[in-house]
Design a protein around this nucleic acid. Sequence first.
RNA 1: GGAUGAGUGGCCGAGCGGCUUAAGGCAGCGGUCUUGAAAACCGCCAAAGGUUCAAAGCCUUUCGUGGGUUCGAAUCCCACCUCAUCCGCCA
Length: 424
Amino acid sequence: MHDLRAIRANPAAFDAAMARRGLGAVSPDILALDAERRAVLTELQGLQERARAISKQVAEFRRTGLPTESLILNAAQIAQNIPALEQRASQKEDEVQRLLAGLPNVLDPDVPDGTDESANLVLAQHGEPRDLGFAPRQHFELGEALGMMDFAAAAKMSGSRFVVLRGALARLERALGQFMLDLHTREHGYTEMAVPTLVNDAAAYGTDKLPKFGDTMFRTTDGRWLIPTAEVPLTFSVANEVLAARALPLRLTALTECYRSEAGAAGRDTRGMLRQHQFRKVELVSITAPEASAEEHERMTRCAEAVLRALGLTFRRVLLCAGDTGFGAAKTLDLEVWLPGQQAWREISSCSNTRDFQARRMGARMRGTDGKALSFVHTLNGSGVAVGRALIAVMESHQQADGSILIPPVLRPYMGGAERIAAA
RNA sequence: GGAUGAGUGGCCGAGCGGCUUAAGGCAGCGGUCUUGAAAACCGCCAAAGGUUCAAAGCCUUUCGUGGGUUCGAAUCCCACCUCAUCCGCCA
């Protein structure tokens, strides 16, 4: 959500910001609507003031025993016009809000221009794609050969884009989630949360999934949403709160199921479990003071990278360009992991600073250190990391010529000490 | 699913048609005192919006949400939402 006053103060700057998102000049529409809104409000408030003054006089006259009939008649006349004006005022208010709610966040200055992922900037790389000494297989080839990854069984009960894991592979997925949570809570100062995965409209709106992206989520028959990411419940936990400056930053993490309709992804990544309707993810969310969010963004990304390092994966850090940066983000850093089987870099984490964009939508504020000034907090979210994709990466990266998979040492305590996953 | 009760500023909480401009307390901020801190005492402290180049000032709105009654609603009426408790069912 955007600050209407800021747009009014500098419409050209706002239009320039939206132009980076590929949008035309929107400020003229906003300002025209806002002018109407204010005109109606001014008129309405004038009437309200007169009506209130007369009501006070009625009370006064009653006390002193003066006749009130003409006053009441007068007030009734004024009050007659108020409901219609109120309706127009709230209608204009809604129109402005609806217009603003559909506009993406202003990008950080250091986000590169560009319309698609080809303009993304690779900032750093950890490790090198290396030759395994044999033809690497893709994760689903490995998993199916092991008898532990079953897409047919999933299709039978749920359809495409689901998977059934068995035995050691099911355990490996659990191990990955536990390891990530332990790492972030023990080493990185995050607080583990257990949160609902069904949320209401307000939560989806506050985290900028609505009104634009309803078709990417699953909706329940009673009008709730299956969360597409734990970012939604974690971030919305501070909605409508006023936080003390000293309580910040808030660092929250949760391991949840995530649900995505994948509408518009028809035909993409249909093989394997890269793109599923349901997957697990460890999410990182930070709530910070405005001046601290840029540094927190960097820190959060390093926390996600620590997971990939510990798992012995090859990855790179990518700064998304204007056209590839999500609706609510001011700046996004993706982590892409190297998948030897696919011979491709694939996104495994996405860390975004939304600045005050979500905070405005959900009314999340903080009290400054002077004890007076209220300001919107900044919210950040990042995957730390996607568990399903981490499973794929571990399988493909640590596969052996015989089709077995070497378990990274950090996961072995979670695997009953086992060092290798091999066919039974 | 049924019954009962409750939703008031950052938090607690009084108020139940017009001297409410929402009491009082806590927290917060500033000060006095102190070597410093604590305590005590004094003072300041809701938000959003309109008017304005801006500030001050003035004005409006907000007591869960939406309607209604009234000249006037935190207060009365209706619907809904949420929470709590009990019953039923249940992992």
